[in-house]
Design a protein around this nucleic acid. Structure first.
Lengths: 341, 341
DNA sequence: CTGAAAGCGCTTACAG
DNA sequence: CTGAAAGCGCTTACAG
């Protein structure tokens, strides 16, 4: 690769002058600008972003820390949004090989040694030391689905609470009273707000909360199976199950059918996420739609705004959620007897 | 961040010496090594990878060019493999915001200005100028599913041809003779070898090739729907359809059922990829399994070998494929009448 | 309008 | 075993 010195020599000017035309400084005569441009063309010169970054302190790269498998459809959609927003921004995306479980590893050291301009974090538990260190470091940060903030850190989430509330209301309107909830990982902000939505929904119709109707999981297909097995063993089994993710809902449906029961004939199931497969599944899944792609796009747009201006206020944005009714929910099969309350 | 100068001052030595202990040079006395290590500890110093890269010419980052949406399950699995292999390698992954359609854009310029140590490319048509430029540039490269090679460029693919051949054989064993093929994008190496496998399968049983039984698509769900519609309009419609991807197979099944026909009752369908959803789908999909995760892992392992040693021969690796029989294929419903041949 | 010089944070011969 | 110096490819005051 030709360097800036080669160009300077070729054009018969100083490297300072070459730098000025590259960076569109106004105080360069048209004539030397021409000469330089020609030399650049001739040598196919491209400025070295790395070297530039060393002096300007900007790397034109944003880092991403995603502590969840890429095979999770939610992650895929998020990444797709991130990618879209990055497209003509001039920034590239770096996926850090973070060793979060290694006590000697420091995520911010990693970011700083890479000169990252900003970072988006997803899927890290809120109490992981990295979160706090990141906030203190002053590196522009956007947290996805984690309600952390800081001087230079904002966050973006779906309106999880309302989403689950809507799901519960929908089931109640269909006559269900025995509504269970297959939750996510306790302590995670996402999980807490969804659980709150579940409780909101019950309370709005004065349905008492039953501890045995809430079982935790990890958003996976498998935890849908396991959780549902437990629910089906209950003396009074639920007639509807709200799930913390579509994958979990798929698992739930599988487990229900494995018992010879049907969805939605015997039990209604609703998911959360509205991944592409929700529509393909049989029965097509009633679920809560999240604007995941949009969350990806906005996380980057906001991050770039923060990078560009030190006093851009760190945003806290909530994306709406909505209920998509399909085939996995139906009227409660038998009128609920009085003993439920 | 503390710099190497700060450490040198703190330890009372020169920066050269600090550099030597960082890089584990043997010729440093134990005593000064101690002093330096303490200073590093004290200042929480971490070497700047960027600055180091400027002088060593290595960036410890590998680039990835993926010209297919992340929401494609195949891509997700590939990325997951790539991520796994990178985990403790010291390398980070950079996803380049490549503007492949912009004539002023050059992918290798991009790679070079970022100082990338190597790159894995996936989903770029073989005749795109970037491929050739990349090969000529001498940047260590691994192509996934593209049979390009070069001085410093290897590739890795699934045994596509055999995979489809097995699918066809399976259908023939079930009594099918009218076997259609929903292909991918013409000209892409993956497509050509799969098509060859289809022809192999027919030929092995002396079933004549019918042009109208092959329709091209783009691996998507939608192209499965469109392609199948065409097949169903044929005077003599196929009794089995082999698809170039699982997503396309899902689309095919949808289109078949939309006509009031059943799978596999009326028509058998087989996919390609064996994505996670293949098992969940109803009917569970008979498909060709690819070791996608393994392809991701190996592409990085081989790439790193090439980076580390200039004379590591660029590998050409083929991963096996295998048929997974599930519920979407069954015996051919009606004995095929003589007119087929 | 142009260029010499210092510096970003490192590494690497080389001399002592 | 240690350090002064040059250099990686750039940008940025500053002087002229």
């Amino acid at each position: 690769m030709a360097s800036i010195h080669d160009v300077a020599k070729e054009a018969g000017v100083s490297v300072a002058t070459v730098s000025k035309v590259i960076n569109h400084y106004p105080d360069v005569s048209e004539k030397t600008r021409r000469k330089v441009k020609n030399a650049i063309e001739l040598l196919r010169y491209r400025p070295n972003v790395i070297a530039r970054g060393l002096v300007t302190g900007r790397s034109w790269t944003v880092g991403v820390l995603i502590n969840i498998p890429f095979t999770n459809p939610y992650v895929s959609m998020l990444l797709e949004g991130i990618k879209t927003a990055l497209e003509n921004s001039g920034y590239d995306l770096m996926r850090l090989s973070a060793r979060l479980n290694d006590p000697d590893y420091s995520f911010i050291d990693h970011c700083q040694s890479r000169n990252l301009d900003g970072v988006v974090v997803f899927g890290v538990e809120k109490d992981h030391r990295s979160i706090q260190e990141l906030i203190e470091s002053g590196i522009p940060t956007m947290f996805v689905d984690t309600d952390a903030t800081g001087q230079r850190a904002g966050n973006i989430t779906t309106d999880n609470r309302n989403g689950v509330h809507k799901a519960v209301r929908h089931l109640i309107e269909l006559g269900h009273q025995r509504i269970a909830y297959l939750a996510g990982i306790p302590g995670q902000p996402v999980n807490e707000s969804r659980l709150a939505g579940y409780l909101d929904g019950l309370k709005a119709s004065s349905i008492p909360y039953r501890e045995e109707y809430v079982v935790n999981g990890d958003y996976s297909y498998d935890s849908g199976i396991q959780g549902t097995k437990k629910l089906l063993e209950l003396a009074q089994r639920p007639t509807a199950i709200v799930c913390t993710s579509d994958m979990t809902a798929f698992g739930a449906i599988h487990a229900i059918e494995a018992q010879g029961l049907t969805v939605p004939g015997d039990i209604s199931v609703v998911g959360f996420d509205n991944i592409f497969e929700a529509e393909l599944f049989k029965p097509a899944l009633t679920t809560i739609n999240q604007h995941i792609h949009s969350i990806g796009v906005k996380s980057i747009e906001e991050l770039i705004s923060m990078i560009k201006s030190a006093d851009y206020p760190p945003p806290v944005v909530t994306e709406p959620s909505s209920l998509i009714v399909r085939e996995s929910t139906a009227r409660c099969p038998e009128p609920v007897s009085g003993d439920v309350h």
